[in-house]
Design a binder for these strands. Sequence first.
DNA 1: AACTTTTGTTTAATCGATTAACCATTATTA
DNA 2: TAATAATGGTTAATCGATTAAACAAAAGTT
Lengths: 340, 340
Amino acid sequence: MSLRKKKVSLKDIAQQVGVSTALVSYVLNNKREDRISKEVAKKIRSTAKKMNYRTNQIARSLKTNKTATLGLIVADISNPFFSQLARFIEDQAAAANYTVIFASSDENEQKSQNLINVFLDRQVDGLIIAPAENTKPQIRALQRSATPFVLVDRYFPDLKCSYVALDNFQAAREAVRHLIREGNRRIGLITFKTSFFHINERRNGYLSALREAGIPINKKWIREINMADPAPGIKKAVADMLALPTRPEALFFSTNMLYIQGMIYLRQQGIKVPDEIAIVSFDETEASELFDVPPTYIRQPIREMGQQATRILIENIERRHTRQVHLPGELIINTSSIRR
Amino acid sequence: MSLRKKKVSLKDIAQQVGVSTALVSYVLNNKREDRISKEVAKKIRSTAKKMNYRTNQIARSLKTNKTATLGLIVADISNPFFSQLARFIEDQAAAANYTVIFASSDENEQKSQNLINVFLDRQVDGLIIAPAENTKPQIRALQRSATPFVLVDRYFPDLKCSYVALDNFQAAREAVRHLIREGNRRIGLITFKTSFFHINERRNGYLSALREAGIPINKKWIREINMADPAPGIKKAVADMLALPTRPEALFFSTNMLYIQGMIYLRQQGIKVPDEIAIVSFDETEASELFDVPPTYIRQPIREMGQQATRILIENIERRHTRQVHLPGELIINTSSIRR
DNA sequence: AACTTTTGTTTAATCGATTAACCATTATTA
DNA sequence: TAATAATGGTTAATCGATTAAACAAAAGTT
């Protein structure tokens, strides 16, 4: 039930020491060190410490017009990909003396707009955004604002702004090429029905790999799952494919979530991977450990993605320019795609 | 390569409309509505909109001494328990017009102290903290500061401060009572070796349930895993117990992580759950779906935890007082603990 | 001795919004 | 009609830190 204690300000220290606030400010910020007597500096520092002084960042920000804060908006914080990404971004930002404040748009357009506004109101120095679906107009509006930003993981190809993303096309093509090299010709694709560019690039990579190998595209082997309630869709998609007269020998899942749900179903049905069907997917999670076969998958360079996005943003803040980065995925080959 | 545009301020609007900044402020904050002519108010609002004005929260905060921001420090954002918790806290805070800025201490003492400092420097109105191990001194110091805070999930019983946590003792006791009711008498415990009060309460609940049933405690059935690198420890603990001449008929895992790793091992060894060994654990994750038997577990009321913590904090901010809340866990009974 | 530098510090404006107190007008009332 | 109240607004101080510019005193230079 203690009364609210007032925080110590520069003024308090100045009074205590018997100098002006200006001097205190100079000392505590290590400015004009040549012009300040050692003893006074020492005294100021020690009283600041004694009085437990901490800079009021709000006041500093108002004057300097900098907050040393980056805003991070991820699409879904409950997705391990994003929580890892957030962590790397935080670390990289901290190394450059920035704090990250972050929030999740939960793949929701309205929430995304709110968050952008909240962050702008708080005068963040810059934004890192993994944009939710259909938020292109929001990003376009952001371009007209004063605040630097970088997209990450997802982007809009016709929007000229900075971003860091996986080269999804080449990653997916690599994955499917691998399946082809392993002797599979009937290769199914399970992906989301979406306007997301990055997801559709995965499909394009799949198609490209088939075409270059001269394998005809079979529409029955391509299934697009509704994002709203994917679980039953995935089950049905896999079931349908397995029931085809010419069933695929291999499946490419375009996201980890699709893969997990697909595997759960395959296991329920007692279908042996890779003997009856070979599998390649995206990303790793601790869940994969629970299936008996170690998965072949595309590993995204999450750390690098976070680091680059942060670095580019900070560069942007200090000196305006845009930069687009495509990072390569790495195909990690494991049992799930290799038949002996 | 556009030049940084200056943001629109109250002054700009005032000049445009030809009134004082005070008036603009009153209008935009809906204050003194009775004393302001409708037309002027309308004009101010429309020009504000036209000029795309957004309040500079930094300036407002400096004057009002409020940031409308809560700081949330979780122990490990990659843990789904915490990412869910974060989400509920965010929602609840948003409903009360607070923004949450959050960060993860990664169970690291030093990082925790840094984050507390960073948040205090930014003048958050209050803090919600899931404290890392050995951070009691930090929390004690926080008590002496001006900033209200609430602990969540974890707390220090000898520290008189607000917190919201599960009643871990009773939850664990309930779980073990259930195993006893199901006819098990040889019940093993796999837990962490830690100074965390909440984890040790789970052990106490286990002991209490055995005692009240008159079952003697067997130290060989209690294993404490090193938190630093748990996976091999868990494996060994389970293996050792299974190798005992009188092996337990049931196992109580005190955290979800222990449960997952334990199950992986049991599956590898081809041990049937619950026929050969009954299992009860803590928390649910999507991973549980991947084991064939639906788990019996203690469900924590995460939403309520987040909501209450937020509500109590905001109350704290507005009118100082402390409050301790213990929430009950709910035992969800499933196949993993029921032998037919 | 008169002038210039250097040294150590202070003054005061500023960032943008808030808000108590004040000031004109224009009704209203006695 | 004079005093009072209501109406619609403005003035100016303030939050706490930053920083260019000014200033006084001491030290150096010619």
